[in-house]
Lab assay of single mutants.
Amino acid sequence: EIEQGFLPKGWEVRHAPNGRPFFIDHNTKTTTWEDPRLKIPAHLRG
């Protein structure tokens, strides 16, 4: 299961009806299937 707590500020994870997680960026009011944490360099992750 995906943990909400480690998402960047302003992001939220939800699950589509088929169970697939998607990510909501409230900063830009966009959604994506890609986990935003995967784009953060390892040394900047919490």
Rank of each mutant, 00 (worst) to 15 (best):
E1V: 10
E1N: 15
E1T: 15
I2V: 07
I2R: 11
I2C: 09
I2P: 00
I2M: 13
E3N: 15
E3M: 12
E3F: 11
E3C: 11
Q4N: 12
Q4E: 15
Q4C: 14
Q4L: 13
Q4G: 12
Q4R: 14
Q4T: 09
Q4P: 11
Q4W: 08
G5R: 11
G5F: 10
G5I: 09
G5C: 09
G5E: 11
F6P: 14
F6Q: 08
F6N: 15
F6Y: 14
F6T: 15
F6V: 14
L7Q: 06
L7E: 06
L7C: 01
L7A: 04
L7R: 00
L7G: 05
L7I: 05
L7T: 06
P8T: 06
P8G: 03
P8N: 04
K9E: 11
K9G: 09
K9Q: 12
K9M: 07
K9D: 13
K9Y: 07
K9W: 05
K9L: 08
G10V: 02
G10Y: 02
G10R: 03
G10P: 01
G10I: 00
G10L: 00
G10W: 02
G10M: 01
W11G: 04
W11P: 02
W11D: 04
W11S: 06
W11R: 05
W11I: 05
W11T: 02
W11Q: 05
E12F: 07
E12P: 00
E12R: 02
E12M: 01
E12H: 09
E12D: 02
E12Y: 03
V13K: 13
V13C: 09
V13D: 01
V13N: 01
R14W: 05
R14G: 11
R14F: 08
R14T: 04
H15T: 13
H15E: 11
H15Y: 11
H15C: 15
H15F: 12
H15D: 13
A16L: 07
A16K: 03
A16Q: 07
A16E: 06
A16F: 01
A16T: 15
P17V: 10
P17W: 06
P17G: 07
P17E: 14
P17Q: 04
P17H: 08
N18D: 11
N18W: 03
N18R: 02
N18Y: 02
N18M: 01
N18L: 03
N18F: 02
G19D: 00
G19E: 03
G19P: 03
G19H: 05
G19M: 01
R20F: 02
R20K: 15
R20I: 08
R20V: 12
R20N: 08
R20L: 09
P21F: 04
P21D: 06
P21M: 09
P21L: 11
P21E: 11
P21S: 09
P21A: 13
F22P: 02
F22S: 02
F22T: 05
F22K: 03
F22W: 06
F22H: 01
F22V: 09
F22R: 03
F22L: 11
F22D: 07
F23I: 01
F23G: 04
F23W: 11
F23T: 01
F23N: 02
I24S: 00
I24V: 12
D25A: 01
D25W: 01
D25F: 00
D25S: 01
D25L: 01
H26D: 05
H26S: 05
H26Y: 02
H26K: 07
N27I: 12
N27E: 07
N27P: 00
N27V: 06
N27M: 06
N27W: 01
N27R: 07
N27Q: 07
T28L: 07
T28Y: 04
T28N: 14
T28W: 00
T28I: 01
T28V: 02
T28F: 02
K29R: 13
K29Y: 00
K29L: 07
K29V: 02
K29D: 15
K29F: 06
T30N: 04
T30Q: 09
T30H: 15
T30W: 00
T30I: 13
T30C: 08
T31N: 03
T31A: 14
T31M: 09
T31P: 01
T31R: 07
T31V: 10
T31S: 14
T31C: 13
T31L: 07
T32M: 03
T32P: 00
T32Q: 14
T32I: 05
T32H: 13
T32K: 02
W33R: 05
W33D: 05
W33K: 05
W33M: 08
W33H: 08
W33G: 06
W33C: 03
W33A: 07
E34Q: 07
E34S: 10
E34A: 10
E34N: 05
E34H: 10
E34F: 05
E34I: 11
E34T: 06
D35Y: 01
D35I: 01
D35Q: 04
D35G: 04
D35P: 04
D35S: 03
D35M: 03
P36R: 00
P36I: 01
P36Q: 00
P36G: 01
P36Y: 03
P36T: 00
P36H: 03
P36C: 00
P36S: 00
R37V: 04
R37D: 00
R37S: 05
R37Y: 02
R37L: 06
R37A: 04
R37E: 02
L38A: 12
L38M: 13
L38N: 10
L38G: 13
L38T: 14
K39M: 12
K39F: 06
K39L: 11
K39C: 15
K39W: 08
K39V: 10
K39Q: 06
K39A: 12
K39G: 13
I40V: 14
I40M: 13
I40Q: 15
I40K: 15
I40D: 10
I40H: 10
P41Y: 04
P41S: 11
P41K: 12
P41A: 12
P41M: 07
P41T: 10
P41I: 14
A42D: 11
A42H: 12
A42W: 07
A42Y: 09
A42E: 14
A42Q: 14
A42V: 11
A42K: 12
A42T: 09
A42I: 06
H43L: 12
H43K: 13
H43M: 09
H43V: 13
L44I: 13
L44T: 13
L44F: 06
L44S: 14
L44V: 13
R45K: 13
R45M: 09
R45C: 14
R45V: 13
G46S: 14
G46C: 10
